[in-house]
Amino acid sequence: MTFGVLRFPGSCDEVDALLACRRFADAELIWHGDRDLGGVDAVVVPGGFSYGDYLRAGAIARFSPAMEAVADFAHAGGPVLGICNGFQVLCEAGLLPGALLPNESLRFVCRQVDVEVVNADTPFTRTSRPGDVLSIPVKHTTGRYYAPGVTLEELEANGQVLLRYAAGQNPNGSLRNIAGVCNQGRNVMGLMPHPEHAVDPLTGSADGGVLFASLAAHVEALVATA
């Protein structure tokens, strides 16, 4: 099982994500200019400020050759996890519903928050249980999850809301305290918290490992049944 972690110019957390993935499986970096994903089993679109994010977070990265390949990979059912800037990129690319708006405070916020697992029946959360509380840091300026009311209702009804900020922990004003969502096919997930920064108790928490462990287990299970 091999994770591929995208690297855009301006990515900041790609090495952290790579190291986090390697705690659970093999992992390699994928250069933004490459159209070939090199046969990886799951893709992580990492955090940072891809291409500087001067226009709008994630607006440029979605046009990169590697993202075109990721879109094909996702449409074929491959699992894709977008973290922070990666979540923004996946929304911009239309692979996830909704959008990320500037935080209510209009300030960057870096804070350890509690998030609750809402749906544990996905490739990203399968090693957790509904109601599990994970301590994971957020760090962003543009993390307020927004979608029209009708879309939110659909997301809730389809079980596409995977993570919610715990009561009183919403750091950015996200609607319905949404911290992470997936697509209808449940193979593309985006979240604002940084699970790659929560894989070691020494640096704060190991709770974020659930996402990487789940993805690794998902891929291993596919291989076993193939």
Binding site: C12, V15, D16, F108, V109, C110, P137, K139, T203
Partner: peptide, 10 residues
């Protein structure tokens, strides 16, 4: 300090 990323780099 909450306006600073204090954790990138692991």
């Amino acid at each position: 300090f909450e306006q600073y990323d204090s954790i990138v780099g692991s």
